[in-house]
């Protein structure tokens, strides 16, 4: 984290600027003095495990919670003092669905258009566009309670864009979706900044998903522990690892050390080499000792490795046991039922 520069908070391009933000619930500091900025028309990812403070930060930015101390501003307006102006500039997809399931897709969108005072001449067109955008035109007049999870999520994203916000918040947009729907939704989301001229502020705890972000801040226990581009963050764990099998491993190790000055060692019949630019290293190795190489593979660090290195724990257990699944289900049930 030492190498990662924090963004300058005052730059004029920044549509979101947060400084020393603190939010306490009783004794617990859910957000514990965070500072960051988000540039216009980029995708910003907020990454962290359960209870890190992601939703709390979003709630402050979208004016639903008052901060305990510190400031947050959006589009130049203070999120607490000028909440009315901030609300005009934002669209949100909450962690838990906020659709009215007893209304149809079209009614949900129309409700939104009226609520945001979209003019009469524009209203119908924007609703139809949003339906097309969410690929729900043929289901427009069905009650939302008959929709699948992916359809509801798409509808919520489309609804959040009806009033042309400057910033779209997505709090765990893919939670509870199958891999196929997740991939579809991401395709849909990554196009937004260009298509709609909107800045995206998203949270997730799926590390793979954060790859689409222009910048990432990793948050744990209410504190930002690292931030930067995905590539910058990966450098924290030391770059790529190349694995080689050769006809004579011991000789190859010596040659590689001599030729490249790279760190190489042998383990379990495989040579592994740590390097910052694996894709440039492999051709060089092949050129020098190519005839003795039997196989070569390269592993890039994932954001998961980053998280592991920074916090000493996995952000999300990939192979969660059944017990953990149940715990997670209980936790998300509580989350849904403890709040207003």
């Amino acid at each position: 984290m030492q190498h990662i520069a924090f963004f300058l908070v005052n730059s004029s391009m920044q549509i979101i600027a947060v400084r020393n933000l603190v939010k306490k619930f009783g004794q617990i500091a859910a957000v514990d003095g965070i500072s960051f900025g988000v540039e216009e028309n980029t995708i910003f990812g907020f990454l962290g495990p359960n209870g890190a403070g992601k939703t709390t930060t979003i709630s402050i930015l979208c004016t639903l919670l008052a901060p305990t101390s510190g400031t947050a501003s959006l589009n130049g307006h203070d999120c607490h003092a000028e909440s009315a102006l901030v609300r005009r500039s934002i669209g949100i997809v909450f962690q838990d669905s906020s659709l009215d399931k007893d209304l149809t897709a079209r009614e949900n969108l129309l409700f939104h258009a009226y609520l945001y005072d979209v003019g009469k001449s524009e209203r119908k067109k924007r609703v139809e566009d949003a339906l097309a955008f969410a690929e729900l035109t043929d289901r427009a007049d069905n009650l939302v309670k008959t929709f699948s999870g992916g359809m509801k999520r798409r509808l919520e994203v489309a609804r959040g864009l009806i009033h042309r916000p400057k910033v779209l918040f997505l709090d765990e947009p893919t939670l509870g979706l199958d891999p196929q729907s997740r991939a579809n939704l991401w395709e849909f989301i990554t196009d937004l900044p260009k298509k709609h001229n909107v800045t995206i502020f998203m949270t997730t705890h799926y590390m793979e998903e954060a790859e689409v972000c222009d910048r990432i801040a990793v948050i744990d226990k209410g504190k930002i522990i690292a931030s930067g581009t995905p590539a910058e963050l990966k450098k924290i764990v030391g770059g790529d690892v190349i694995y080689l099998k050769t006809t004579d491993n011991r000789k190859a190790v010596e040659e590689i050390r001599e030729l490249f000055g790279a760190e190489a060692s042998e383990k379990d019949g495989e040579i592994f080499i740590s390097t910052l630019r694996g894709e440039a290293c492999i051709p060089a190795i092949i050129r020098e000792i190519g005839e003795r190489v039997l196989s070569v593979r390269m592993q890039r660090p994932t954001l998961n490795d980053v998280f592991l290195k920074l916090t000493g724990k996995e952000i999300r257990e990939e192979n969660a046991s059944a017990g953990d699944d149940i715990k997670e289900a209980v936790r998300s049930y509580r989350r849904r039922h403890d709040r207003g």
């Binding site: 005009r88 949100i92 909450f94 906020s98 009215d100 609520l115």
Partner: peptide
């Protein structure tokens, strides 16, 4: 509306 989340849609809208 609070329980099922719809209230948040209303509360973040630019209305008093």
């Amino acid at each position: 509306d609070k329980e099922f989340g719809f209230m948040k849609e209303i509360l973040v809208a630019p209305i008093s």
